[in-house]
């Protein structure tokens, strides 16, 4: 039993067909529980009022926006090294999902920033680096669309993903230079006793779990679609040959 078994599209399709409904159900359970708990059963913050509840969408989306790129990086590396098509297709499938998470983080951030900072947008290092991340996602998706040969597209986007990762980190430190952050630093970390007050923390954890599961579900679903597209193309090609 190893992870490489799933490089076989047939095996992947069989397993993901079983896993998909469970993942979808778990996503729904986590998100409904987390969001309802967060929105209706937590007290208002003493300073921020009820706007603090945006945290249940903003933080998980931002977390997953970055992690989606990391997942794409891992999948791209696996494709470049071991040439497993499922891996390349999973990276392709994750692109639009990651872009959506980035946009959710940006939009909820703007909605939160308006009452708190008095502005929808500021050229704050964190905000700027997320905008750049969105551009990276756009470029990645556009390159997949533009190249016709699927193997060439997979190779080129993998190279772009690797180079892009380095530059995303570089940009992050470059914009730090301006030193005019409105956005607070990292609040959540694993090694602290209490990150934020427990009443907010537990529903937030539930929402983060929900977003992770949602990412998993969407990527599985989209990868399955991509595999089916490949199969249809192969069938069409065979018919043309005959």
């Amino acid at each position: 039993m190893s992870i490489w078994e799933y490089a076989n599209p047939k095996k992947f399709m069989e397993t993901s067909a079983i896993a998909l409904p469970w993942a979808a159900a778990a996503t729904a359970a986590c998100l409904v529980a987390g969001l309802v708990w967060g929105f209706f059963f937590t007290p208002d913050d003493y300073k921020q009022g009820s706007t603090v509840k945006i945290i249940y969408l903003h933080v998980p989306a931002a977390l997953m926006a970055i992690n989606a790129w990391l997942m794409m990086l891992a999948a791209s590396l696996i494709w470049l090294v071991r040439r497993h098509h499922v891996s390349a297709l999973a990276a392709k499938a994750a692109g639009p999902v990651g872009l959506t998470f980035t946009l959710i983080a940006l939009v909820t951030g703007a909605v939160w920033g308006q009452p708190m900072w008095g502005t929808w947008w500021a050229w704050d290092p964190r905000l700027t680096s997320f905008l750049i991340l969105a551009l990276f996602y756009l470029g990645y998706i556009a390159l997949w669309q533009a190249v016709e040969n699927p193997d060439t597209a997979a190779d080129l986007t993998s190279v772009l993903c690797i180079v892009g990762s380095v530059f995303a980190v570089l940009s992050r430190y470059a914009v730090n230079f301006w030193n005019q952050g409105l956005h607070q630093g990292a609040t959540l970390s694993l090694d602290k006793e209490e990150n934020i007050s427990d009443v907010f923390y537990f529903p937030l954890l539930l929402c983060i779990g929900g977003f992770v599961l949602m990412f998993l579900t969407l990527v599985l679903l989209r990868t399955r679609t991509e595999i089916r597209v490949r199969r249809v193309q192969a069938l069409l090609a065979r018919e043309r040959m005959a």
Binding site: I132, L135, F136, L138, G139, A142, L143, A146, L160, V163, G164, F167, A168, L170, S171, Y173, A174, V175, F177
Partner: peptide, 15 residues
Amino acid sequence: LLSLLVLPLYVPTLV
């Protein structure tokens, strides 16, 4: 596409 790909890569240099 070329401009879209290159633009985010130019950010650190420009800054």
